[in-house]
Computed example of a mutant assay.
Amino acid sequence: MKYVTEYRNSRQARAIASELEHAAQPGRQYRFMEFCGGHTHVLARWGLTDLLPGNVRMIHGPGCPVCVLPIGRIDMAMEAALQHKAILCTYADTLRVPASGGKSLFMAKAEGADIRMVYSPMDALAVARENPDREVVFFAIGFETTTPPTAVCLLQAKKEGIKNFSVICSHVLTPAAMEHILVTAPRREAAPVLDGLVGPAHVSVVIGSEPYRMFADKWKMPVVICGFEPLDMLMTILMLVRQVNEGRHEVENEFTRAVTPEGNLIAKKLMERVFRVRDSFEWRGLGSVPHSALRLSPEFEEFDAERRFGLVEREVPDSKACQCGAILRGEKEPFECKAFGRACTPAHPIGACMVSSEGACAAFYSYGRLRRGSEKSPAA
């Protein structure tokens, strides 16, 4: 398959790994954060960390849309379904995230709430058309990747004059969260805790590479936008190592086959019309992050489920047995959580990082990386 199999060549993977071995300078530590959960899965699935030099470490960031949802937002969705008797539509992983008291949307469904899994916002809009006598709420989550489809859905709802449809808007913004991590990250001696950032792939297809310019200019931080195949990741890490060695801090684009500097202009224009940036938004593990999420613009406020039903987000602490917050901040790895692989598994998750298909804990569990120094995985 074009653009897939050619990026999974084991011979080329070992060649890049050999270049990395020569490029990584002895006595120097390299710490790079991959923000996107999809990249965490690439590293785990293909055993790429086993190909890296010992002084090159990958830090797993909060780039999983389900994982960063705070409990309070899930409780809001549950309230819409249980108390206001709305049909709640959302993506599959969201249904399994533990909320207050360990309850989930799946459990609420078992109690009689009408909660449905959908593949797109348009599926939720179709439910509203089919049930004109019921309120239908779409629980909209995700980064810039899933935001344009929600915008298109709201434009269509407005065009058709559908009155029984609304949205709990929980779309979040990548650059704001990345900067928050840099602002709040501890420092080791006189140096920043991170030496470079792996830019997300799908998000960057939408927003382009230019929004990362501030990390290079303001933070003097190398950034390389990376695709989702093993060779993409290895080449990205090599590009980051070379930037650090040469004292450069630039935005480079390894994923040139899909990402442009300006991004998807049509999608961005739609987002600008339908949404406005919130002053702040609560993220699981990161706390309140300024200018990091979206709400509906005045033109589309009629579809705001929070206003329609008087939903109020409440701050709810995570389970004390779960280390999701520290894992999302890159401060701990999954196997450092005592519940990981024991009380917390994909079948019985305690935290969001084990629920989502993009969560770091799910990645480590699924691909057998259950402890530090685990057995070598086969190369790409």
Rank of each mutant, 00 (worst) to 15 (best):
G161I: 10
I181A: 06
A151G: 12
H180G: 11
T146F: 00
C169Q: 13
A177N: 05
K163P: 00
T147A: 15
A157L: 12
I162L: 12
L154Q: 00
C169P: 10
T146H: 01
A151D: 01
C169M: 15
A177P: 02
T150V: 15
E144N: 04
F143A: 10
P149N: 03
K158Y: 00
S170F: 06
L173E: 06
T145Y: 07
T145I: 12
T174Q: 08
L173F: 09
G142F: 01
E144L: 08
L154S: 02
T146L: 10
I181F: 01
I141F: 04
A176S: 15
L173Y: 09
T174P: 12
K159G: 00
A177V: 15
T146E: 02
I168W: 00
G142Y: 03
H171W: 06
T147S: 14
A177C: 14
M178A: 15
L154R: 01
T147W: 05
F143D: 07
H180E: 12
L154P: 07
P175Y: 02
E144W: 00
I162S: 02
H180R: 12
T145V: 12
P148Y: 01
T146D: 01
N164E: 05
K159E: 14
K158F: 00
A176F: 07
Q156R: 15
I141Y: 04
L154I: 09
T147P: 11
C153H: 03
T146C: 02
I168L: 14
S170K: 08
E144Q: 09
K158N: 08
E179Y: 05
E179Q: 13
V167C: 11
K158V: 03
T150D: 04
H171M: 14
L155F: 12
S166K: 03
K163D: 13
I162M: 05
P149S: 00
P175T: 04
L154M: 09
L173T: 13
C153I: 09
T146Y: 01
A157H: 07
V172M: 12
E179S: 04
C153S: 09
C153N: 04
A177D: 07
F165T: 07
F143Y: 09
P175A: 02
S170R: 09
N164R: 06
P148G: 01
T145Q: 05
E160I: 07
E179P: 07
S166L: 06
K159T: 09
V152L: 14
P148S: 01
H171L: 12
T174I: 14
L173G: 07
F165E: 06
